[in-house]
Write a protein that binds this DNA or RNA. Structure first.
Lengths: 220, 220
DNA sequence: GCTTTTTTTTAGATTTGACTAAATATATTT
DNA sequence: AAATATATTTAGTCAAATCTAAAAAAAAGC
């Protein structure tokens, strides 16, 4: 029931690669993990022996139910720590991933469930990705972006999909953060810019490029 | 500048054993780490090569300045996480150590300094042990216990030295926690029990055994 | 002060996770 | 469909951290 840091990194990476394609290949995984194909083959044999994935030589691999369950637990830990780092420790959005890569391997269930409660059971991490719950349930995956929200509909910022320092600086300046409530006041067809209301009566205009990167939680 | 989990555990344990005796022996360390003497000798050679300790075959070992600096950084991480677990995640005093043993090996300096700030730069962990600051400075080490506090002197609970569930239950019942302000009202010579005031006007009596285990920060 | 016991070290083996180089299977060309 | 190219696996090494068994040094007993 307990896996090494190395095993966890393989499992997590397979999960992410699987989503895009049906099956994962040796080279893909080696590239993603910055390791060699031969090392991947070795690990696949081990994970198959542990019954976490399907694997026949030369046929690629994919996680089975047990492997998926393990992957979701790792992703839950990663995203909860990211949320903690951003919200509580005031790390910027582009710094959280690297630190969470280390924290995610501390696999004490009680710790993670208590952290979840402390954070108020957040639904999304700072990049807008959904956080699996204690049972491994995860929300759709489809993220709603600001331009898809109708006029005059109050909504809450749940993350940004682009993690560059530039976008951060701009958002910081406009005081748009995770949890910020906002509402679209006007859509300009000319350049697709949006006039939005944030907080009580602050009105500002944001470009289409910026709006595309702001992820939204629907509920008021 | 970066050490493996195993190296860190050896360094940390040597630091704790040193305090009591001048030099640490192979068997002592093997006992503490639940490993074999031969493994200890191997690791001592490695840590000596890394210039973290003094070691001559058959002569025991002790950390040098660099080794002590590394040990204090590990202890700082451990105790800050313990404080976080107890204060923020509501772990009980007897549960925090085990979890902190894992978290302490995530050695990102920025993470730890930001955690420190988030927690309000606590001086002691939930067991009353002092937390080294960002520069590795650590306070005396001498803990003051409740019976040593004079009458009518307001003070603050900084921890307990005994971590059993029984003492916890009792303290919980009497609403004595870390940070609780209290003041001794009367000392009974017969059984050395103490009558104390906690909070506004709650008066209660505690036994000598209990008082001995309550650690105090002097400042009002 | 020699002998016995205890402690520590050395020597050699094991496991995990990685690597290189070579072999083999699959895919792509022509 | 054979030849070439690419992807994958196998075979054999290596380093880290552990172990057991045996040898060597230090300490204790008589």
């Amino acid at each position: 029931m307990n896996y090494s840091v190395s095993e966890e990194n393989y499992i997590k990476t397979i999960f992410h690669l699987q989503k895009k394609e049906g099956t994962v290949t040796t080279n893909e995984l080696a590239g993603e993990l910055k390791t060699r194909p031969a090392s991947v083959t070795d690990m696949m044999k081990k994970l198959k022996a542990k019954k976490l994935l399907h694997y026949q030589p030369y046929q690629g691999f994919r996680l089975n139910n047990d492997g998926t369950r393990v992957a979701l637990a790792i992703i839950r830990r990663h995203r909860l720590w990211e949320y903690f780092l951003a919200e509580k420790l005031k790390f910027t959005w582009d710094e959280v991933h690297e630190v969470a890569e280390e924290l995610e391997h501390v696999s004490n269930k009680k710790l993670i469930d208590k952290l979840d409660a402390f954070l108020g059971y957040p639904k999304n991490d700072p990049h807008g990705d959904p956080i699996p719950d204690a049972n491994g349930k995860i929300e759709s995956g489809k993220k709603i972006r600001l331009p898809e929200i109708p006029l005059h509909t109050p909504c809450i910022v749940s993350g940004v999909s682009n993690q560059s320092g530039d976008i951060l600086e701009l958002l910081e300046h406009k005081k748009i953060r995770i949890g910020t409530r906002l509402e679209i006041r006007k859509k300009f067809d000319f350049d697709e810019s949006l006039e939005i209301k944030t907080g009580k009566q602050t009105i500002t205009t944001i470009s289409r490029q910026l709006a595309e990167n702001i992820l939204i939680t629907h509920e008021a």
